[in-house]
Amino acid sequence: MKLLAKLQEIPYRVVYLLVLTAIVLPFVIELRLPIFVSNETLMAYNTIEQLPDTQIVIFVSSWDAGIKGELWPQTEALMRHMMQRGIKFAIMSQIAQGASFAEEIAERVAKLYNRKYGVDWCNWGFLTGDAAMIQALTKNIPKTVQKDFRGTPLEDIPMMQGIKDISNVSLIIDIDYGPRPEWISFVHGPYGTPIIFGCASIVSSTLFPYIDSGQLVGLLVGVRGATEYESLLRYRGMGHNLIIPQSLAHLLIVILVVLGNIGYLVARKLR
């Protein structure tokens, strides 16, 4: 019984070693697990499947290196889908580094589908200003953005011809650690533009109410969302590689919590 009570006293170094083993193991031994596609990911997929190719999509990629593991696969999966369908999109970011990451992914994916910069996709770069910038964007895109990430005036970019304001935008995708509700307040609310969010798993619980109310037409939750999207597109990308270590880590944490509680309850009884 005393041994059982000690289950709540596993040294933190042992916990760290177990977590490390759980994360590294799938890279040594190939493991495959069935993927369950959630409703919110399917909604996002169906929205992009039904988009007309006559308007553009604004792809807001506001994440940095710290959250790369969760949001890079989401960004890549969504870009693949849009490039596959020939839907034009404009990348922008509300943080300084975001546009660079998205540009790197877009350049890689564009080569797979033979898409050209300026014709099928472009990068507006870093646009600061939060709600004020979003409101200005809805009224006049060329005046708010002016030049792209590479310094080219917007009027010289072929895909931006005829794009004036929010009425020329068919969808907004915001990939961020915690996507900003300002897109819902200032874009979806007044103009009805559909919005898809991609977020880190830890903040996803705060965004489910928007799915329920119909204010979001899709939500990608962390690596899980990216993996589900990849399975809908029928390819194995970074999401599939990362979901297995995450699964094993989750299972380990659950086992540790159960063991810790067994130890706690036995110790309480022995007192």
């Binding site: 760290y16 490390l20 593991g69 380990l252 540790l256």
Partner: peptide, 22 residues
């Protein structure tokens, strides 16, 4: 940047083990 954020995985595992007591 990725390294700093990935340290959270270890801290959260340890915190969950110690903190989530019934």
């Amino acid at each position: 940047g990725a390294t700093i954020f990935s340290l959270l995985a270890l801290f959260m595992a340890s915190a969950a083990y110690r903190g989530m007591k019934v």
